[in-house]
Design a protein around this nucleic acid. Structure first.
Lengths: 252, 252
DNA sequence: CGGCGTTTTGACAGGCTTCAAGGGCCGTGG
DNA sequence: CCACGGCCCTTGAAGCCTGTCAAAACGCCG
C-alpha cells in the first residue's frame, strides 16, 4: 500500500524546485530558511488512494506536508462510526499532533494518490532552536487548523443539514481554488457522498437527499466527481455565512 | 465589566509564586525560563462572570493564560445560534489564534470571576527567538487544544445525545480533577444547562431530558451547581469511552 | 455481460426541536 | 415579612428533521 520506504536520499524534488512555493497564497522564504528546510526534509512518501498512513493509537516519528493530492483526518469509534475531522490539501501540514504527543489520536487517509514531504520528529527541536521564524510558522499552521475545526464544529452543532452541506462544499471549493485546482468554477472532487456524510455528521441517505436539494436549487452541480458552483451568491446565502478571505500563509 | 486596566505594574502575583506551578500535571520551568516568563507577563486581568473579554471580529493584542476561574470559547451565528467550542480552565492558554491571525474568529466569556495573566503580542516573537523550549510549549498547547476539539467534533457528529452528554461531563470532570478542583468525586460546575446545551449542539429541553436520564441511571448527580460522579464505570460505559457499543453493521 | 461500488428513491420510525407552561430559588423592594 | 420579578430547571405535547431499512438504478471495469 505504501511506497517510498528505503529509497536512497536525494531522489525527490528539492525544495528550491517545490511546485507549491510559487503559489501566491504562501509566504516567501528567505534563502536561509529554504536551505534549512531542504535539509530538514529527508524523504518523499507516496501513498495510494484509500490507504491510511497515520493511524489512531500509533506513535508518529515523522511530520508531513502534503505536496500533492487530497487526504482527510478522521476518528473511528469502536463500533465503526467514523467522523471525518477535516481535509488536507497541498501545502497542509499533517501529523503534528502525533509528533508532539505520545501517540496519534486520529488517523489520516489518502483520498487520491498522495505525495508527502517527510520531516524527522528528531530534528524538529533543531528547527525551533535555529529558526524561530519557522517555529512561528508551525504554530501559525496549528492555530489555523484549529480555526477550521472550530468552524466545522459550529456546522455540526448549530447548522441545519442544508446549511452545513453548503458551507462545507463552499469551504472546500475555496481552499481548492487558492491552490489553482479550480477551472471555470469547476473542480474534480476526489471523495464520495459517504465521505461527505462522515464529514458532515449525517447519514449517507440524508446527505444524498440534501445534495439533491442543493442541486435542485441550481446553486451547485456534482456529477461524476466533478463539482461546480453555478450560483455563488445563492450558495453563500444558503451556507449562511461567507467564507472568510485568507491571507498569505506559511508553508514548510 | 472588565477591571484591571491602568493598574501599575508589579501589583500582581509574580511568577515565582504562581499557585499553578506546583501542580503535578504541569512541567517544571528552569530558572531562565521562569525569569523570562516573569518579565513576559505584563499584567493581570480580572473579568467578571458573564463578561466576554475577547470578541469575534476584534483584533487581539494580548495573549492570555487562565490563572483562576472558568471560561468558554464560543462562536455566534447571525441569527443568535451559539456554539460553545470548548472550556478554558486554569493553566489553559487563551487568545493564541487572535494573536497569530489578524482577528479573532471566536469569542471568550468568563463563567466565573476570572483571573488572567496578560502577555503582549509584541513580545511573542522574542519568546520564539530566545526560548525555543517555550515556543515548543506553545505549539504543544495549540496541538492539545486541537485534540480536544477533535474529540468534541466526534461527539457532535457521531455520538447520540446520551453518549455525548456523558462524554462531555466526564471530560470536564477529569480536567477539573487534574487541577485539584474535585473533592469526594464532586465539584462545583459553574455553568447552566443552557451552556451545556450550547456546547453539545442540542436544545435546552433535550439537554435537560438527557441529563435526567443520566441521573436516573445513577451515574451522576447534579443539583444546585454541584456535580458528582456516582458510578464512574457506568458513566464511562455510557460515554462509550471504554466498552464498545455493539451496533449492527453489515458483514459478509 | 456480470460484479461491485456508488448514487437514488421510497417508506417508516424515532430522536430531537419547538412551543408552551408551570415550579423552584433567590434577591429586591414595598 | 411578604410580594414580585428574573433566572433556571422541569415537563408535556406536537411535529419536523434525520436516521434506518430496503431495494433499485447507475456507471465503471474486467
Amino acid at each position: 500500500m505504501i511506497v517510498g520506504n528505503g529509497r536512497p536520499r536525494g531522489q525527490f524534488t528539492p525544495c528550491e524546485q517545490c511546485p507549491l512555493r510559487a503559489l501566491p497564497c504562501l509566504r516567501e522564504f528567505t534563502a536561509e530558511e529554504l536551505a534549512f528546510v531542504k535539509q530538514f526534509k529527508i524523504d518523499e512518501l507516496h501513498v495510494d488512494a484509500g490507504a491510511s498512513f497515520l493511524r489512531q493509537g500509533a506513535r508518529a516519528d515523522h511530520l508531513y506536508t502534503v505536496l500533492s493530492g487530497w487526504a482527510f483526518r478522521y476518528k473511528m469509534l469502536d463500533d465503526g462510526r467514523r467522523q471525518i475531522l477535516n481535509f488536507a490539501l497541498p501545502a497542509d501540514m499533517v501529523g503534528l499532533q502525533g509528533t508532539l504527543m505520545h501517540e496519534m489520536e486520529h488517523s489520516v487517509e489518502a483520498l487520491t494518490p498522495l505525495t508527502l514531504c517527510v520531516f524527522p520528529r528528531s530534528k524538529l527541536y533543531d528547527l525551533y532552536s535555529q529558526f524561530p521564524s519557522l517555529a512561528f510558522d508551525i504554530t501559525w499552521l496549528a492555530a489555523r487548523e484549529e480555526q477550521l475545526i472550530d468552524e466545522h464544529l459550529v456546522s455540526l452543532g448549530r447548522r441545519t443539514a442544508l446549511e452545513r452541506t453548503a458551507f462545507l462544499l463552499l469551504h472546500l471549493f475555496e481552499r481548492a481554488r487558492e491552490l489553482n485546482l479550480v477551472k471555470d468554477n469547476a473542480i474534480q472532487f476526489p471523495f464520495t457522498q459517504q465521505h461527505l456524510a462522515d464529514a458532515l455528521g449525517m447519514s449517507l441517505v440524508h446527505t444524498n437527499k440534501t445534495l439533491k436539494r442543493l442541486m435542485a436549487s441550481k446553486a451547485v452541480s456534482w456529477k461524476g466527481r466533478v463539482f461546480a458552483v453555478l450560483d455563488r451568491h445563492l450558495l453563500e446565502q444558503v451556507a449562511g455565512d461567507e467564507v472568510p478571505k485568507r491571507r498569505p500563509r506559511p508553508f514548510i
